[in-house]
Write a protein that binds this DNA or RNA. Sequence first.
DNA 1: AACACGATCTACT
DNA 2: GTAGATCGTGTTG
Length: 194
Amino acid sequence: MVSRPKGLGRRLPRSFYARKTVSVARELLGKVLVYDGPAGRRAARIVEVEAYLGARDPASHAYRGPTPRTAPMFGPPGRSYVYFVYGMYHCLNVVTESDGVAGAVLLRGAEPLAGFEGFSPRALAGPGKLARAFGLTTKHTNLDLVRSALSIRNARPVPSPRVVRSVRVGLNDHATTNKPWRLYVRGSFGVSRP
DNA sequence: AACACGATCTACT
DNA sequence: GTAGATCGTGTTG
């Protein structure tokens, strides 16, 4: 009989993030994003992610080297990287790889678990919607997920037959547009576009 | 100083 | 399917 924790699992340790970005992306599926913010505790199950690498990934913000905005992507693993796009949305990433090596996983979709009373069930289906529902902005970039009010908790892994790998969304004409670095849980209502 | 554009979303034809 | 919203960022002059 496998234990089934009723409450939150333990925070993922730094070592979880200090690995290859695609591996971290795969294992983030099913884990629980938690933010203890002004509105209280909010928690959601991660069901859609995308991996963004560094120098070998033209679609990545880190492709042309660090800038003030993208500095967290080059920093230590296990921190947040939040950026602002299209003049109205924010997107939350989890920094991967070792300190000095760029890599991040974009959180694109989640299923609300707690603290989202009054929200639509699909309020977290999409990266801009997810960050907005959690109340995250660029002020929350470079937070340490191992120590701060923002964290990711352990939970049961999503079995491979339930995981879909596809090309990433929203990219233009990059060379890596065809890489299958978007992963999501098959059939989940928290996925932005199945 | 000026410009082009973006890891999005919603509304509408 | 396409258009528009709306502004920080990086680049160019």
